[in-house]
Design a protein around this nucleic acid. Structure first.
Lengths: 187, 187
DNA sequence: CCGATCGGTCAACGCTTGTTGGCCTACGCT
DNA sequence: AGCGTAGGCCAACAAGCGTTGACCGATCGG
């Protein structure tokens, strides 16, 4: 027994998990392929075999589904609270979003991915509830700015007061903001 | 005439300006000392002479004064709008803040600097206008989250709808949010 | 007029990075 | 039993990085 062998898929998954953690913790440049390979318990060259190059690895590692809840059923007045709550959940479940944010700030491809994710997944929600359809993109961007800003302060920069707030407090403060961005009349 | 000589201070300043631009455009790791030196028109070793090492250069390049306006004189009801307007100005005057944000997301020292800047300069403003003094840090963090979030969307990630909004639109949307975070009763 | 000082270059160092290609070996199939 | 193949390692590559120290010429005070 020199080295334990795994199925190809198991190794792929191990690499992906290690990559997600390292991208989230270190950002794109400082998350080295060598470190990721070490975390996954294999040789760096395996990463190249499975994902082509570093960009390809990041592309695979940053695939994400925000899984925003269906909006039709619930009362339109509570949509702000539901949305904020859901985003906090999503952000704390794993570190894919943190990684995406960290990379998106420095890396062109990361920024593009971020645009795509929020555009495609928050856009429809805004379209569904806002008064005039042509305002939907701007309203979605406003919501994104507040959600991303809180995530930035709380999970990335770790501003002390933002970290100390409870989830309920965050929801209580942010929900009315999001609600207004989505449904209020254009000021 | 082989090479034009400058005063020491002029070169220091040239380096600092080049460093600010590169840090803002590329983040900490990709902003290389060699590239900064090239921009400033000198040899990389001069950067070391003047600023010791890369960390020292960044520390010097990220010194910033938010220059928040005095809050005493103006009517307390307009403080949200004034604050948002001022931040947009400050953000667009030069790229120090963009650089600080870009670096703060990946770099420990950058995050610390960001915490210091916003804590020390936004904190007092919150303390001056919020109902209960012990809530000031949390309120300042909330304001920071919205301001930073908009800066992130507009100047770093460049989400299209956020870029397309006029300054007045941004102020109109964000001012009530900031106003509420600072002065409203704890929800 | 001469020597110190100042602004500046040059060449190299040790190291890390992404990436490549060859080789090895255990396993599954026939 | 024997062979192909899949999973994996190893060693090396070229390039780029931060950083160092020796050297050079202009300038300026005595």
């Amino acid at each position: 027994m020199t080295t334990a062998r795994r199925s190809s898929d198991a190794t792929r998954a191990a690499i992906l998990e290690a990559a997600r953690e390292r991208f989230a913790a270190d950002g794109y440049e400082r998350a080295t392929i060598r470190a990721i390979a070490r975390d996954a318990g294999i040789d760096p060259s395996m990463v190249m075999r499975y994902y082509g190059n570093k960009e390809g690895l990041f592309a695979a590692a940053s695939e994400i589904d925000l899984a925003l809840p269906g909006l039709g059923a619930l009362p339109a007045r509570h949509i702000g609270a539901v949305l904020v709550h859901h985003f906090l959940d999503r952000w704390e479940r794993d570190d894919v979003l943190t990684g995406l944010l960290r990379v998106g700030v420095t890396n062109e491809a990361g920024a593009a991915r971020m645009q795509a994710v929020f555009g495609a997944q928050l856009g429809p929600v805004a379209l569904g509830v806002c008064p005039r359809p042509e305002e939907a993109p701007a309203r979605a961007a406003l919501v994104a700015s507040q959600i991303l800003g809180m995530a930035l302060a709380r999970y990335v920069l770790r501003l002390q007061p933002a970290v100390d707030m409870s989830r309920d407090e965050v929801v209580a403060w942010l929900a009315p903001t999001v609600q207004r961005y989505l449904t209020a009349e254009h000021p």
